[in-house]
Design a protein around this nucleic acid. Sequence first.
DNA 1: TATCTCGTTCAATTCAAATTGAACGTTCTA
DNA 2: TAGAACGTTCAATTTGAATTGAACGAGATA
Lengths: 152, 152
Amino acid sequence: MIEAAARLCQLIALPRSTGQIYGLLYLSPSALSLDDMVELLRISKASASTATRQLASLRAIRQVWVQGDRRDYFEAEPDISALLRIGYTEFLQPRLKSSRTRLERMSGALNDDLARGRISEADHKLCSERLKNISALEQKFQALAPLAEKFL
Amino acid sequence: MIEAAARLCQLIALPRSTGQIYGLLYLSPSALSLDDMVELLRISKASASTATRQLASLRAIRQVWVQGDRRDYFEAEPDISALLRIGYTEFLQPRLKSSRTRLERMSGALNDDLARGRISEADHKLCSERLKNISALEQKFQALAPLAEKFL
DNA sequence: TATCTCGTTCAATTCAAATTGAACGTTCTA
DNA sequence: TAGAACGTTCAATTTGAATTGAACGAGATA
Protein backbone atom coordinates (compact mmCIF):
# COMPACT_ATOMS: atom_id res chain seq x y z
CA MET A 1 0.00 0.00 0.00
CA ILE A 2 2.68 2.40 1.02
CA GLU A 3 4.85 1.51 -1.91
CA ALA A 4 2.19 3.11 -4.03
CA ALA A 5 2.73 6.41 -2.30
CA ALA A 6 6.47 6.00 -2.59
CA ARG A 7 6.22 5.72 -6.36
CA LEU A 8 3.88 8.65 -6.46
CA CYS A 9 6.57 10.74 -4.89
CA GLN A 10 9.36 9.52 -7.09
CA LEU A 11 7.46 11.22 -9.87
CA ILE A 12 8.46 14.55 -8.46
CA ALA A 13 12.11 13.78 -7.94
CA LEU A 14 12.01 13.43 -4.18
CA PRO A 15 14.05 10.85 -2.29
CA ARG A 16 12.21 7.59 -2.11
CA SER A 17 12.11 7.36 1.64
CA THR A 18 10.65 10.83 1.84
CA GLY A 19 7.82 9.72 -0.37
CA GLN A 20 7.27 6.62 1.68
CA ILE A 21 6.95 8.62 4.83
CA TYR A 22 4.49 11.06 3.42
CA GLY A 23 2.42 8.21 2.06
CA LEU A 24 2.46 6.45 5.38
CA LEU A 25 1.43 9.53 7.28
CA TYR A 26 -1.20 10.44 4.73
CA LEU A 27 -2.90 7.10 5.24
CA SER A 28 -2.27 6.75 8.92
CA PRO A 29 -5.27 7.52 11.13
CA SER A 30 -3.04 8.79 13.92
CA ALA A 31 0.18 10.73 14.19
CA LEU A 32 3.35 8.66 14.16
CA SER A 33 6.71 8.96 15.87
CA LEU A 34 10.07 8.55 14.19
CA ASP A 35 10.39 5.12 15.72
CA ASP A 36 7.03 4.11 14.32
CA MET A 37 8.18 5.02 10.84
CA VAL A 38 11.50 3.29 11.27
CA GLU A 39 9.72 0.11 12.24
CA LEU A 40 6.91 0.24 9.70
CA LEU A 41 9.04 1.19 6.72
CA ARG A 42 12.24 -0.61 7.70
CA ILE A 43 14.40 2.43 7.19
CA SER A 44 17.11 3.88 9.35
CA LYS A 45 16.41 6.52 11.91
CA ALA A 46 18.74 8.86 10.09
CA SER A 47 16.64 8.63 6.95
CA ALA A 48 13.47 9.15 8.89
CA SER A 49 14.90 12.18 10.59
CA THR A 50 16.09 13.89 7.42
CA ALA A 51 12.94 12.99 5.53
CA THR A 52 10.63 14.39 8.18
CA ARG A 53 12.55 17.61 8.27
CA GLN A 54 12.42 17.84 4.50
CA LEU A 55 8.70 17.27 4.51
CA ALA A 56 8.14 19.67 7.35
CA SER A 57 10.08 22.38 5.56
CA LEU A 58 7.78 21.85 2.58
CA ARG A 59 4.85 22.02 4.98
CA ALA A 60 3.79 18.59 3.79
CA ILE A 61 3.72 17.26 7.33
CA ARG A 62 3.26 18.85 10.71
CA GLN A 63 4.73 18.08 14.09
CA VAL A 64 2.14 17.44 16.76
CA TRP A 65 2.44 16.96 20.48
CA VAL A 66 1.23 13.87 22.23
CA GLN A 67 0.85 14.42 25.93
CA GLY A 68 2.79 12.17 28.21
CA ASP A 69 5.29 11.28 25.52
CA ARG A 70 8.31 13.34 24.73
CA ARG A 71 8.86 11.91 21.29
CA ASP A 72 8.09 13.92 18.17
CA TYR A 73 4.93 12.90 16.39
CA PHE A 74 4.01 13.83 12.83
CA GLU A 75 0.86 13.99 10.80
CA ALA A 76 0.38 14.64 7.09
CA GLU A 77 -1.03 17.77 5.56
CA PRO A 78 -4.17 16.31 3.99
CA ASP A 79 -4.78 19.03 1.42
CA ILE A 80 -2.72 17.99 -1.52
CA SER A 81 -3.78 20.92 -3.64
CA ALA A 82 -2.15 23.16 -1.10
CA LEU A 83 1.02 21.13 -1.43
CA LEU A 84 0.94 21.53 -5.17
CA ARG A 85 0.68 25.26 -4.74
CA ILE A 86 3.65 25.27 -2.43
CA GLY A 87 5.59 23.12 -4.82
CA TYR A 88 4.86 25.51 -7.61
CA THR A 89 5.73 28.73 -5.85
CA GLU A 90 8.79 27.41 -4.10
CA PHE A 91 10.16 25.04 -6.65
CA LEU A 92 8.96 25.63 -10.17
CA GLN A 93 8.46 29.36 -10.04
CA PRO A 94 12.07 30.21 -9.12
CA ARG A 95 13.41 27.91 -11.80
CA LEU A 96 11.24 29.50 -14.39
CA LYS A 97 12.47 32.88 -13.36
CA SER A 98 16.13 31.95 -13.51
CA SER A 99 15.47 30.30 -16.82
CA ARG A 100 14.03 33.56 -18.06
CA THR A 101 17.08 35.59 -17.13
CA ARG A 102 19.27 32.97 -18.71
CA LEU A 103 17.35 33.25 -21.93
CA GLU A 104 17.79 36.98 -21.86
CA ARG A 105 21.51 36.66 -21.40
CA MET A 106 21.73 34.22 -24.26
CA SER A 107 19.80 36.54 -26.47
CA GLY A 108 22.18 39.34 -25.59
CA ALA A 109 25.22 37.23 -26.36
CA LEU A 110 23.66 36.37 -29.68
CA ASN A 111 23.20 39.97 -30.66
CA ASP A 112 26.75 40.59 -29.64
CA ASP A 113 27.95 37.81 -31.90
CA LEU A 114 26.08 39.34 -34.78
CA ALA A 115 27.49 42.79 -34.15
CA ARG A 116 31.02 41.43 -34.20
CA GLY A 117 30.36 39.45 -37.33
CA ARG A 118 30.93 36.13 -35.64
CA ILE A 119 27.78 34.65 -37.10
CA SER A 120 25.84 35.20 -40.26
CA GLU A 121 22.68 37.24 -40.28
CA ALA A 122 20.59 34.24 -41.24
CA ASP A 123 21.93 32.18 -38.36
CA HIS A 124 21.30 34.99 -35.97
CA LYS A 125 17.75 35.31 -37.14
CA LEU A 126 16.99 31.62 -36.75
CA CYS A 127 18.60 31.39 -33.37
CA SER A 128 16.94 34.40 -31.85
CA GLU A 129 13.68 33.24 -33.35
CA ARG A 130 13.94 30.02 -31.43
CA LEU A 131 14.98 31.68 -28.23
CA LYS A 132 11.97 33.90 -28.56
CA ASN A 133 9.75 30.87 -29.00
CA ILE A 134 10.91 29.46 -25.74
CA SER A 135 10.34 32.74 -23.98
CA ALA A 136 6.84 32.89 -25.37
CA LEU A 137 6.10 29.38 -24.22
CA GLU A 138 7.39 30.18 -20.79
CA GLN A 139 5.16 33.19 -20.54
CA LYS A 140 2.15 31.20 -21.57
CA PHE A 141 3.02 28.68 -18.95
CA GLN A 142 3.29 31.34 -16.28
CA ALA A 143 -0.07 32.66 -17.35
CA LEU A 144 -1.55 29.20 -17.09
CA ALA A 145 -0.29 28.58 -13.58
CA PRO A 146 -2.72 30.75 -11.61
CA LEU A 147 -5.55 29.34 -13.66
CA ALA A 148 -4.56 25.82 -12.77
CA GLU A 149 -4.19 26.85 -9.18
CA LYS A 150 -7.80 27.93 -9.03
CA PHE A 151 -8.95 24.88 -10.84
CA LEU A 152 -7.32 22.20 -8.71
CA MET B 1 24.98 28.40 -23.74
CA ILE B 2 24.32 24.74 -24.17
CA GLU B 3 24.63 24.07 -20.49
CA ALA B 4 21.48 26.08 -20.13
CA ALA B 5 19.60 23.63 -22.26
CA ALA B 6 21.15 20.75 -20.40
CA ARG B 7 19.77 22.05 -17.13
CA LEU B 8 16.43 22.66 -18.74
CA CYS B 9 16.25 18.99 -19.56
CA GLN B 10 17.34 17.77 -16.18
CA LEU B 11 14.11 19.28 -14.97
CA ILE B 12 12.22 16.53 -16.69
CA ALA B 13 14.35 13.63 -15.50
CA LEU B 14 16.15 12.97 -18.74
CA PRO B 15 19.81 11.99 -18.90
CA ARG B 16 22.00 15.03 -18.95
CA SER B 17 23.69 14.28 -22.22
CA THR B 18 20.33 13.83 -23.90
CA GLY B 19 19.37 17.30 -22.81
CA GLN B 20 22.63 18.71 -24.02
CA ILE B 21 22.13 17.24 -27.44
CA TYR B 22 18.64 18.53 -27.83
CA GLY B 23 19.76 21.97 -26.73
CA LEU B 24 22.63 21.94 -29.16
CA LEU B 25 20.44 20.88 -32.05
CA TYR B 26 17.73 23.32 -31.12
CA LEU B 27 20.14 26.20 -31.38
CA SER B 28 22.17 24.91 -34.26
CA PRO B 29 21.38 26.53 -37.60
CA SER B 30 22.23 23.35 -39.48
CA ALA B 31 21.83 19.64 -38.90
CA LEU B 32 24.66 17.94 -37.06
CA SER B 33 26.28 14.55 -37.27
CA LEU B 34 27.12 12.30 -34.34
CA ASP B 35 30.75 13.29 -34.64
CA ASP B 36 29.84 16.95 -34.51
CA MET B 37 28.03 16.41 -31.24
CA VAL B 38 30.86 14.31 -29.85
CA GLU B 39 33.30 17.07 -30.57
CA LEU B 40 31.19 20.02 -29.51
CA LEU B 41 29.89 18.51 -26.29
CA ARG B 42 32.94 16.43 -25.38
CA ILE B 43 30.92 13.28 -24.88
CA SER B 44 31.53 9.76 -26.07
CA LYS B 45 30.11 8.47 -29.29
CA ALA B 46 28.20 5.85 -27.36
CA SER B 47 26.38 8.50 -25.39
CA ALA B 48 25.62 10.48 -28.50
CA SER B 49 24.25 7.41 -30.20
CA THR B 50 21.93 6.39 -27.39
CA ALA B 51 20.83 9.94 -26.77
CA THR B 52 19.94 10.58 -30.38
CA ARG B 53 17.90 7.42 -30.52
CA GLN B 54 16.13 8.36 -27.33
CA LEU B 55 15.32 11.78 -28.68
CA ALA B 56 14.26 10.40 -32.02
CA SER B 57 11.93 7.93 -30.36
CA LEU B 58 10.36 10.87 -28.54
CA ARG B 59 10.16 12.68 -31.86
CA ALA B 60 12.21 15.48 -30.37
CA ILE B 61 14.76 15.29 -33.15
CA ARG B 62 14.65 14.08 -36.72
CA GLN B 63 17.19 12.35 -38.87
CA VAL B 64 17.91 14.17 -42.10
CA TRP B 65 19.94 13.23 -45.12
CA VAL B 66 22.83 15.27 -46.33
CA GLN B 67 23.74 14.43 -49.87
CA GLY B 68 27.26 13.28 -50.50
CA ASP B 69 27.78 12.24 -46.89
CA ARG B 70 26.81 8.91 -45.52
CA ARG B 71 26.78 9.98 -41.93
CA ASP B 72 23.51 10.46 -40.02
CA TYR B 73 22.55 14.05 -39.47
CA PHE B 74 19.99 15.28 -36.98
CA GLU B 75 17.92 18.38 -36.50
CA ALA B 76 15.69 19.39 -33.61
CA GLU B 77 11.93 19.50 -33.67
CA PRO B 78 11.43 23.23 -33.18
CA ASP B 79 7.87 23.12 -31.89
CA ILE B 80 8.27 22.60 -28.18
CA SER B 81 4.56 22.64 -27.52
CA ALA B 82 4.27 19.56 -29.66
CA LEU B 83 6.96 17.93 -27.55
CA LEU B 84 5.06 18.75 -24.42
CA ARG B 85 2.00 17.10 -25.86
CA ILE B 86 3.98 13.99 -26.67
CA GLY B 87 5.48 13.99 -23.21
CA TYR B 88 2.07 14.19 -21.70
CA THR B 89 0.36 11.47 -23.70
CA GLU B 90 3.28 9.07 -23.64
CA PHE B 91 4.70 9.69 -20.25
CA LEU B 92 2.36 11.32 -17.80
CA GLN B 93 -0.92 9.94 -19.07
CA PRO B 94 0.01 6.28 -18.59
CA ARG B 95 1.33 6.92 -15.12
CA LEU B 96 -1.84 8.65 -14.13
CA LYS B 97 -3.84 5.75 -15.39
CA SER B 98 -1.83 3.14 -13.51
CA SER B 99 -2.03 5.34 -10.49
CA ARG B 100 -5.80 5.30 -10.81
CA THR B 101 -6.06 1.52 -10.88
CA ARG B 102 -3.73 1.35 -7.92
CA LEU B 103 -5.95 3.67 -5.98
CA GLU B 104 -8.91 1.50 -6.80
CA ARG B 105 -7.16 -1.60 -5.59
CA MET B 106 -6.19 0.13 -2.38
CA SER B 107 -9.72 1.23 -1.84
CA GLY B 108 -10.89 -2.32 -2.34
CA ALA B 109 -8.37 -3.68 0.13
CA LEU B 110 -9.52 -1.09 2.60
CA ASN B 111 -13.15 -2.16 2.37
CA ASP B 112 -12.02 -5.71 2.80
CA ASP B 113 -10.17 -4.82 5.96
CA LEU B 114 -13.28 -3.21 7.33
CA ALA B 115 -15.46 -6.20 6.49
CA ARG B 116 -13.09 -8.51 8.35
CA GLY B 117 -12.93 -6.21 11.31
CA ARG B 118 -9.25 -5.55 10.91
CA ILE B 119 -9.70 -1.82 11.26
CA SER B 120 -12.14 0.38 13.10
CA GLU B 121 -14.95 2.07 11.28
CA ALA B 122 -13.54 5.51 12.04
CA ASP B 123 -10.17 4.60 10.59
CA HIS B 124 -11.78 3.18 7.52
CA LYS B 125 -13.77 6.30 7.00
CA LEU B 126 -10.77 8.59 7.27
CA CYS B 127 -8.62 6.47 5.02
CA SER B 128 -11.12 6.04 2.24
CA GLU B 129 -11.90 9.71 2.51
CA ARG B 130 -8.32 10.52 1.78
CA LEU B 131 -8.03 8.05 -1.03
CA LYS B 132 -11.10 9.61 -2.55
CA ASN B 133 -9.51 13.03 -2.30
CA ILE B 134 -6.56 11.87 -4.32
CA SER B 135 -8.82 10.35 -6.93
CA ALA B 136 -10.74 13.57 -7.20
CA LEU B 137 -7.58 15.56 -7.62
CA GLU B 138 -6.40 13.22 -10.29
CA GLN B 139 -9.60 13.60 -12.20
CA LYS B 140 -9.39 17.34 -12.02
CA PHE B 141 -5.90 17.12 -13.31
CA GLN B 142 -6.93 14.97 -16.22
CA ALA B 143 -9.66 17.43 -17.01
CA LEU B 144 -7.17 20.25 -16.95
CA ALA B 145 -4.77 18.60 -19.34
CA PRO B 146 -6.62 19.09 -22.62
CA LEU B 147 -7.29 22.66 -21.65
CA ALA B 148 -3.61 23.28 -21.11
CA GLU B 149 -2.86 21.56 -24.36
CA LYS B 150 -4.98 24.04 -26.26
CA PHE B 151 -3.55 26.93 -24.35
CA LEU B 152 0.15 26.28 -24.85
C1' DT C 1 25.70 13.40 38.94
C1' DA C 2 25.13 9.18 36.21
C1' DT C 3 22.18 7.19 33.01
C1' DC C 4 18.36 6.95 29.62
C1' DT C 5 15.82 8.40 25.70
C1' DC C 6 15.41 11.02 21.97
C1' DG C 7 16.68 13.48 17.53
C1' DT C 8 20.45 15.21 14.73
C1' DT C 9 24.73 15.16 12.19
C1' DC C 10 28.36 13.45 9.38
C1' DA C 11 31.58 10.34 7.25
C1' DA C 12 31.26 6.01 4.99
C1' DT C 13 28.65 2.85 2.25
C1' DT C 14 25.41 1.38 -1.03
C1' DC C 15 22.87 1.83 -4.99
C1' DA C 16 21.15 3.11 -9.42
C1' DA C 17 21.76 5.56 -13.43
C1' DA C 18 24.75 7.71 -16.81
C1' DT C 19 28.81 7.45 -19.29
C1' DT C 20 32.49 5.27 -21.50
C1' DG C 21 35.80 2.19 -24.17
C1' DA C 22 36.18 -1.55 -26.89
C1' DA C 23 34.41 -5.01 -29.85
C1' DC C 24 31.28 -5.74 -33.49
C1' DG C 25 28.31 -5.60 -37.90
C1' DT C 26 27.34 -3.13 -41.92
C1' DT C 27 28.04 -0.41 -45.80
C1' DC C 28 30.92 2.04 -48.72
C1' DT C 29 35.62 2.57 -51.21
C1' DA C 30 39.85 1.49 -53.36
C1' DT D 1 38.68 -8.56 -51.34
C1' DA D 2 40.95 -5.70 -47.92
C1' DG D 3 40.30 -1.83 -45.47
C1' DA D 4 38.08 2.39 -43.84
C1' DA D 5 34.14 4.91 -41.98
C1' DC D 6 29.99 4.58 -39.65
C1' DG D 7 26.60 3.54 -35.95
C1' DT D 8 25.32 0.22 -32.38
C1' DT D 9 25.80 -2.73 -28.41
C1' DC D 10 27.36 -4.30 -24.05
C1' DA D 11 30.23 -4.95 -20.04
C1' DA D 12 32.83 -2.09 -17.04
C1' DT D 13 33.49 2.23 -14.87
C1' DT D 14 32.26 6.57 -13.08
C1' DT D 15 29.41 9.60 -10.79
C1' DG D 16 26.08 11.49 -7.84
C1' DA D 17 22.52 10.82 -4.65
C1' DA D 18 20.24 8.18 -1.03
C1' DT D 19 20.89 5.49 2.85
C1' DT D 20 23.09 3.98 6.85
C1' DG D 21 25.80 3.32 11.30
C1' DA D 22 27.97 5.46 14.78
C1' DA D 23 29.09 9.34 17.49
C1' DC D 24 27.14 13.21 19.54
C1' DG D 25 24.20 16.75 22.24
C1' DA D 26 20.19 18.02 24.63
C1' DG D 27 16.73 17.03 27.90
C1' DA D 28 14.53 14.06 31.05
C1' DT D 29 14.81 10.65 35.05
C1' DA D 30 16.59 8.57 39.00
